[in-house]
Structure formats: C-alpha cells, structure tokens
Design a protein around this nucleic acid. Sequence first.
RNA 1: GCCGGCUUAGCUCAGUGGCAGAGCACCCGCCUUGUAAGCGGACGGUCGUCAGUUCAAGUCUGACAGCCGGCUCCA
Length: 623
Amino acid sequence: MSSVASHQSSPLTPSDDLHRLRHSTAHVLAAAVLRLFPEARYDIGPAIENGFYYDFDLPRTLTSKDLEAIEAEMKRIVAEDVPFERLEVSREEARKQLEALHQPYKLERLADIPEGEVVSLYRSGDFLDLCRGPHIERTGYIKAFKLLSIAGCYYRGNEHNQQLQRIYGTAFFSQAELDAHLQRLEQAKARDHRKLGERLNLFVIDDLVGQGLVLWTPKGTILRKQLQAFLEEELIKQDYVQVTTPHIGKLDLFKISGHYPYYKESQFAPIWERDAWNEALETSHSCEELRQRLEEKVDVDGFLLKPMNCPMHVRLYASQPRSYRDLPIRMAEFGTVYRWEQSGELSGLTRVRGFTQDDAHIFCREDQLEAELSGCLKLINTIFTTLGMSDYRVRISLRDPKSDKYIGDDALWEKAENGLRKAAQQLSQPATEALGEAAFYGPKLDFIVRDVIGREWQLGTIQIDYNLPHRFNIRYVGSDNQPHVPIMIHRAPFGSMERFCGLLIEHFGGDFPLWLAPEQVRILPIKDDLIPYADEIHACLKVAHIRCSVDDRSETLNAKIRAAESDKVPYSFVVGAKEKEMHSVSVRSRCQPHNNGTHALEKIIAILREEIQQRKLPEAMQR
RNA sequence: GCCGGCUUAGCUCAGUGGCAGAGCACCCGCCUUGUAAGCGGACGGUCGUCAGUUCAAGUCUGACAGCCGGCUCCA
C-alpha cells in the first residue's frame, strides 16, 4: 500500500509508516532550513496527528515567502535522494558531534536521555540530527508534502523560556492523498461554527460588548432554549430540583470555597464596594499597600463574578437542616459563570469569558454514590445518543501528584479517584487516565469532542468532590442521629451551553434536527396572489407550535427554494393554486431535495409534530 | 499574555504612492413565477483606530484594538 520501505523487522501498520514518512519529512524540513539559515538552531521535529512540525531558533522571523523557499529547498533534498543513516554512538560521541554543529537545544535534549538508553543520530546528506528514529530509507521516498503554517512556541512548552518558531507541515504517500487532505481542511472551514454561526445568524460576538462574551440572536436563543428544554425533561425524569442563584457573590464565599485563592488569575478582578474602595484609597500609603489590602488582606469587602456555581448551591444546601432521608438532593441550575481567559485563547463559542453551565450538584451519602454516578452517565449517554454524537472520548482526569494546586487530603482524593474509575467501567468505551487534569477540589470524568479543525474540547463532565462539603462544613443527620458530611457530585452533561452549541453547529453542519432548527418550515407561495393562503398555512403551523415563516418576496420559486436551502430550513412548503384548492402543501425536505409529494395540511402537521416530539435526527444522519 | 499573519460596503473579495471598485444581499420598479439564483435601477465607505513619512497614503512606518493560526493557560 505504501512505497515506503520499512527497515524494521517487526510488522507495521499503515499509520506507523505514515508517521515515519512524516517524521522523515520533518528532518528534510530542518535540513532545508539549515541550508537557508546556516546559523539556525534546531530543537525537535516530531510527527503529529495530521502531519509534522519542527521548532527553530532563527536570526529573524519567517514569512510566508520563506515557507515557499524552504519548500523549494526541501524538494531539492528529496531529488538528491540521500539515505537516512542511523548511527548508534556513545553519549560522549553524540555530544562532540552536536557541539561541533553548535546546537545548544540538541545538547540539552541529549542530556535528557536517561543513562543506559541507546543514543542514536540520524544523518541524511549534510544534515545530522539527534533522533530515536525510525526513518524511511531515502529522502527520495517523500512524494507529497506541504508546509502549512508558522507559529510561535516556547522551548519545552514553558512560557518563561526562549520563544522558537515552529513550522507546521504535512506529508502523504501520494499527491492524491495530500490533495484530498487539503480539500478536507478547506471543506471543514465551511462547517466552522464561527463562520456558520454568523451566516445562520445564531450568535454575535461584538467588540464593544467585549471579547469572549456571546450575544445570542433570536435564532440562536431558540437553539439554546430547545436544548435546555430537552435537558429539563431529563432532569424531571431523574428527580432533580432546579434552583436560581445570582451572578456575583461575596469574595468571602469564594475564599472559603477555595476558588479565589487557588484560581485568582483565571477570574475577573473582584468588584470592590465603593465605600471600601474609597477608604482603602485614602488610608493606603502606597500602591503596594493598596494592592495588598485589596488582594491579600481581608479588611476590604468585595464581590466576585462567580467562576462556578457550586459555592452558591452549597449554601442553599446549608440553608436547612438535612436528614439522611432527604438525600440525594440533586440541585440543578443553568448558571452563568465568568472566567478570565487569556485573550489569545478565546475562540468563537468554544472558549469564552462568560458561559452558562448546565450545572448540577448532587449531595448524597456514601452508599448512594455509585447509583448517582450511574445516573449521571445515563444522562450523558441519553444526550449524546439523541444528538447522534458518537465521536467522543472519555478521560479520567486525575491529580498531578507533583502539583500543590489541589485542596483536601490524599485519602479522600484516592477514594474519589477510585469511585470514578469504577463508574468509568460501565462505559461502552475505555476511558484514558490523565494526570494533572483534575479540578482543584476533585477528580473528573470528562467527555471530549473534536471540532472541525481537529481541536479537542471538553464538554460533559462528572466530578466527585469530598472537599467542598468539608470546607463549608455542611451536614446531614444520619440514621444514627449523628451529623455526617455528604459527598458532592458536580456534573454538567453539556458542560457549557456556548461550547456545546458551537460543537453542535459543527456536528450538524448547520443542518439541525427538526426539533432544534430555529426555523422549521418556510412557506413558499408561487405567486404573489397566493400569499394570503401562505399566511393561512402559517397561522395553522403556529397553532401547532411549528416555527415557520412565509417568503413573500416577489421572487421566482427557484430563488425562494435556493434561499431556504442555504438558510438550512428543514422543510419548505410550496403552495400554488393546486395546493390552495385542496388545502394542502407541496413538501420539499432538505434531506431529499426534490418534491416530496403533496400532503393535506393536517397530515403533514401530524408528521412534523411526531418528528419533533421524538427528536429525530436528520435523515442523512439516521442509521 | 507571547510569536506570526490578517482587517476595504451587511457578506465574499479586487484594488503594487496619484478620482474608492465588483458580485451577492438589503431597498425600489418591472416580471407572476411549479422545486437551487428572472430583469433593471437606486442605495451603500472615517479603507479597524490614532499618530507619522510624503506635494499626495487604502497602499509606506509606528502604536493600539479586534480577528485568525499556534504556544502558554484552562476550576
């Protein structure tokens, strides 16, 4: 299947071959850069999911013109068809060779290789690299590649280190595969929720309102509300109660919860009371003193835009005495939270500064934990199944044992982590464990989905928390008449309405199932004198709670159909004299774009009501 | 926040120091349409913002803002 010769004896899958091809192409890239910039210092150049990159420290910043020149040089190296030679050398020998090349980053990378491990260098023509390999046999095997972009990146991924220039590229076995890949990238752009959301008029992000703050249009609001209504039905089935809490709360609340001390940098700055602010200004003798009083000492009252809903739900729990008979209490809220994300990280609906979580906190007893976790998994499964989203992965997010950003003692953490591991076994697919991805108060089970350009985003999450109940000292009276501390489960099946809608737009490419479509039916009168009949149909659909509009422009039918299709309206009803006579409509479905027959109005309304009620997926996605 | 790129009409985009442009959309008129664009006209601009260079700046320089791709971060 591939023209790439394998020089390992063990059998390899095609993806291994592709990986090797790309890694070798990265070496050719570095070789080309070195020819054009002899003073270049190179770091590492791995193959990645859809291609490869290589990081360089260069005397000047690269432009797109440079990419063309580098690509041309790479083609020359491919034409030279030199072999990749593996040289296994002593650590000392490797050091000497890299020193001779004046490659400080490579020397540091060499020092990272554990004692006792084989050190290998790869030579291809005039280029030498410290590399574990393996590689393809000759540069001539590289048939189809393209450099894609330049990006800044930090050495070793640490923002305090030197910033390097990273060149991204991709390579395939054949030009046809490369072309197909580039075409896929191009097509993905059309599905991008940032483009599609604007075109379909679902949401707006306005400079004057602020970065990362989403304005939902009437159409987008319908989408959101339908999702919310869907989830609310499930909440009723699972005996949740809904609550409502404010957008801000006292700083003290978040000091107790730990949000303020632990994640201060990720929050909007506190809102200080005017009097306290004035007094602090007047009585502070220096800016530093003022800063300390406002941020560190407790003698100034302030408020925080809430970064999470949990502290408020905990206080609602604590507002009454609770008996073991009351548990579990499943407290849900579509609560809007605010976080200070770095400006460079904001992106459409998927990374924003204000978003609404479909949040809930379950307060339960130890003996109820397993059943509650199971209920949460069931809820998430219902959502993903209803929406036809099967392409997700599950991550068990654990503490990084080396970090100090977590609260609570080790025994409780272990208990929570094991609880999640056990719950994860119910899943139909294996979950992968990830250190350092936990919340500061507990481990999580995260459901992760990719966007159209391949970036991964966390959507749903289930988190076990033994810590907040202790920090707030909440209790219930047990059957032994003694106080006990409940366990909290934090869970959000969508995660954030904004992020979820963003990925949903891309998932459906804007072709939402009927129940979600902002405009479900568009009525297209053939001639202007049919407008009164179209209005009559419109009124009937409205009574049946079907969202529709009449295209009463003085346009041809073809033009109206084109507009309806491009607006991604699921059904068009064409009405002319024949339909009027029989009190019927001619139906055109977006899934079968041709005349789907003439139906009596009552009949088609019943069909659509059924499709809405059952939350059917678009035919194109049904199996 | 860091590196780089981009920013011209509502949208998509042309405009290589010398009069601000096109297509589509919106609006008006004609046409009265049978399953993906009928025809014509009019309207629409602080060329992201602010400085600078120049006889002259959409075009060159700088700062700032926003967006895009990465990096870092992500409760």
